[in-house]
Amino acid sequence: MTTLPVASVVVPKRTFALDARAIKIVVQRDLIRTFQDRTRFISQLIQPVLFLFVLGSGLSSLTGSATGPIDLRTFMFPGVLATSTLFTAMFSAMSIVWDREFGFLREMLVAPVRRSSIILGKALGGATIATAQAVIVMVLGAFVHVPYTFGLVLTLLAEVFLLSFTLTAFGLAIVARITQVQTVMGLMQMLLLPLSFLSGALYPLSNLPTWLSIVVRFNPLTYAVHPVRTAVFAHLTLPDTVRQRLNPPLTWFGWDVPTWMQLGLVAVMGIGLMLVAIRQFQRVE
């Protein structure tokens, strides 16, 4: 047997570049895994199709002239986009429970990088996947008269990316301590529909019963759905009365919360939830 030269150990200094490499590879792995699993990717597209073309078309006959000159489905589109982002982002966060159950999480947690890099990689991975999926949902939007312009597409993508980052961080913070896939499945069932139903994704925020209008304002998702809808409505030509009914300003005690502030709120929540998730994963025995 030939003796190979003893491999020298090169210990890189802990630098930002090193953590960046770790973040990148964690994102890459999530992307590879997702696009390998086409079934999952496609099955997550079924839901927006159902909402938009089945539920939307069906309800159109009921609402009739209530939506004025615009298609109900155009109105629903921003909510459908946000809801599908919610599902994809949360499922991405869930993958860390799988990684834990099948042992791979350990491989990541024993590596000589900051745990925050691993978690940040997971959140960015989830955000990237959700945004990629949003691109496909946006193609569906073209069939329901969403008045796309280049600027609108960019705005929507940026908003979806921000939202999906926050939602993945939210998911990670929730699942951090969960060790079993079954548990997390149940938990997601419990969270996902209430979150989307209480966000104004599928109905306008005007004329809501008081209790509902309060609950909606406590739901973080509301602050992501509203900017998306506002962006779409900005490109529609509508009588003011219709606009007022379908896309009323989001208010706190009668004060209009500006769009930048809503997005800022989503970003701050994203960072906060990220820190919570990192803390959860940083606990050493």
Binding site: R21, A22, I25, E107, A111
Partner: peptide, 11 residues
């Protein structure tokens, strides 16, 4: 193995 190499910051 490549994943591992990246996490460990191998040259």
């Amino acid at each position: 193995l490549r994943f591992h190499a990246e996490l460990y910051g191998m040259p």
